[in-house]
Nucleic acid binder design. Structure first.
Length: 315
DNA sequence: CCTTCGTTCCGCCATG
DNA sequence: CACATGGCGGAACGAA
């Protein structure tokens, strides 16, 4: 089984750590079997975490078996780390493990040198500091998360959830991820590395929220939706809806719509034997050819290959 | 692979 | 003045 190892160093941010632990621990296949085995490891048997004290059952040698290693943030992201810890992370990565950081956990990831020359993100408030301390890392504070294949980074705590769901989706498909998202009562809509920091966080009232519109769209993916129709439902001009999508989701209306359609298509491919053409119709992607293009763009594979990969892993 | 043609996106600017 | 809106037009996109 896929082993997820969450690192617990002293003064770990409980929210980051718990996000990863809970979301992976609860992910299930359709038949109810857990998708991951989750352990927490660190050099010390006990760590402080704000007002909490956490027992850490596994030592660093546990990283040697992990398929995925999660680095949560620490209260002081610049506090020194034991070389042995950094070595363990580097070795695990060299061995083929996937390493992902949440929030300011990116500082620890950067300390290993694994981020040098690569793009990374972190909490927007710490982005400048990360960049200053690690000039070789290309810091992008505007995105929710960055998937660099074997190295992933995410922004603030909530974005860590997005990243975890993203990993679940690439490991076991859209259906399993969708299910995990539902358990967390988390809308899986903000995929990609696209969504941005919103300039006016809480000032945006319900009246300015796109949520109802997104819900409306999600319910009719199979229909032939136009930008005009969406603007109409939103009671806004085409120009303004487009702008809202940019500001709030970092994408365009049709771009978001297509992403949802592909997600749905993946889910159907994973769980049924419906012909590709029928899947294309059911998701509003129109034709098998079109579905092929979009699926390849997101996953790099064909519908049949995608289906085969997930059918075997679930069955 | 290329072309065609309707759709979509976004900078710019006037308006409230 | 700050800010959000929405129309316009050209560029870019994408489906067939």
């Amino acid at each position: 089984m896929h082993l997820v190892c969450v690192l617990a160093l002293d003064n770990v941010i409980a929210f980051d750590l718990a996000t990863a632990v809970e979301i992976f621990r609860r992910a299930r296949f359709a038949d109810g079997r857990p998708s991951y085995s989750v352990i927490v490891a660190g050099p010390k048997r006990t760590v402080r975490s704000g007002p909490l004290s956490l027992g850490v059952p596994h030592r660093m040698d546990a990283l040697a078996k992990a398929h995925t290693i999660i680095l949560p943030g620490r209260d002081d992201p610049t506090a020194p780390i034991d070389q042995g810890v950094l070595d363990s992370i580097r070795n695990a990565h060299a061995r083929g493990a996937r390493v992902a950081s949440i929030c300011v956990g990116a500082f620890d990831l950067a300390a290993t040198g694994l981020l040098d020359g690569h793009s990374a993100t972190t909490h927007w408030n710490a982005a400048a500091m990360l960049s200053a301390r690690h000039p070789l890392v290309r810091v992008d504070p505007s995105v929710l998360f960055i998937d660099g294949g074997s190295i992933l980074t995410s922004a603030g705590a909530a974005a860590g959830l997005d990243l975890c769901l993203h990993m679940i989706e690439s490991d076991f498909g859209a259906a399993v991820a969708q299910d995990a998202a539902r358990l967390a009562v988390m809308p899986i809509g903000r995929g990609g590395g696209q969504a941005q920091f919103i300039p006016h966080p809480l000032a945006r009232e319900r009246s300015l929220s796109l949520d109802p519109v997104l819900e409306w769209i999600s319910a009719r993916l199979a229909d032939q939706l136009t930008l005009d129709a969406i603007a109409n439902v939103a009671q806004l001009s085409v120009r303004t809806v487009t702008r809202r999508f940019r500001d709030q989701l970092g994408t365009t209306p049709m771009g978001w719509l297509t992403a949802q359609r592909v997600r749905l298509a993946r889910s159907i491919l994973e769980t049924t034997d419906l012909p590709v053409d029928a899947v294309a119709t059911a998701t509003g992607l129109g034709s098998a050819a079109n579905l092929r293009v979009h699926l390849a763009r997101e996953t790099g594979t064909s519908p049949s290959a995608y289906r085969r990969a997930f059918r075997s892993s679930v069955a």
